[in-house]
């Protein structure tokens, strides 16, 4: 475990807590894409299949449980909570996220490190996570006013994988045979998808104005 990876995991944890805080305290999911939350629940469900078979560390298992539990409970809140679901903007959250799953699954069936069920599902989760933010970014461009918590959520979610890139560089130079091209490329693509959001996020922060993405 290196500082970049720990920082990445803590940033990821913070993004999830910010979103749970928003939904649980102000009972609103305005500006939050249910599609992205569903994709993330699927990402964790397919990535952590080894939670019972491969014990890495207490930290690893606890974090997996937190990400699984939080992503599924956020989906439940938005879909079923009698107050929260009223603030869900289903007319704006129209990204056809099924169209993201199919190519990711096909790609995982052809490009993976080992052709086993768990490994293909793990690879699928990497490809899916890379594009999972798209429904949320599309929704942000449609909803004019982005509230602070949603903006912070997306920022932290994008930053965590960016920190992981430093972690991969660090591990590449410190551990022999640490080469995971698929993870690296998926991680870079994922982070690049946030590039324009990061730009407007910093602009709004620098000029101390409300975050607004161009239509």
């Amino acid at each position: 475990m290196n500082i970049f990876r720990l920082a990445g995991d803590m940033t990821h944890l913070a993004s999830v807590l910010v979103l749970l805080l928003k939904i649980h305290t102000i009972k609103s999911c305005a500006g939050v894409s249910l599609k992205t939350q569903e994709l993330y629940a699927l990402v964790f469900a397919t990535r952590y299949l080894d939670i019972v078979t491969d014990f890495i560390s207490v930290y690893n298992t606890v974090m997996k449980l937190i990400f699984l539990g939080s992503s599924f409970s956020i989906v439940w809140y938005i879909r079923h909570h009698r107050v929260v679901r009223r603030s869900y903007d289903k007319d704006q959250d129209t990204f056809r996220h099924y169209l993201l799953m199919i190519p990711c699954m096909l790609l995982a069936l052809f490009v993976h490190e080992k052709f086993t069920f768990k490994e293909v599902m793990w690879t699928f989760s990497l490809y899916l996570e890379a594009v999972a933010i798209l429904p949320q970014l599309v929704l942000l461009q449609r909803t004019r006013n982005i509230d602070n918590l949603t903006g912070q959520y997306v920022f932290l979610l994008g930053a965590y994988r960016g920190l992981y890139i430093f972690n991969w560089i660090y591990r590449y130079f410190t551990e022999p045979h640490f080469v995971h091209w698929i993870t690296w490329i998926a991680g870079v693509v994922q982070t690049l998808l946030y590039a324009d959001f990061f730009y407007y996020y910093f602009e709004s922060w620098k000029n101390n104005v409300r975050l607004q993405l161009p239509a």
Binding site: D9, D54, N60, E113, E119
Partner: peptide, 10 residues
Amino acid sequence: EGTTLKHDEL
């Protein structure tokens, strides 16, 4: 090599 692919990252 027979090492099972262990994914130690989240």
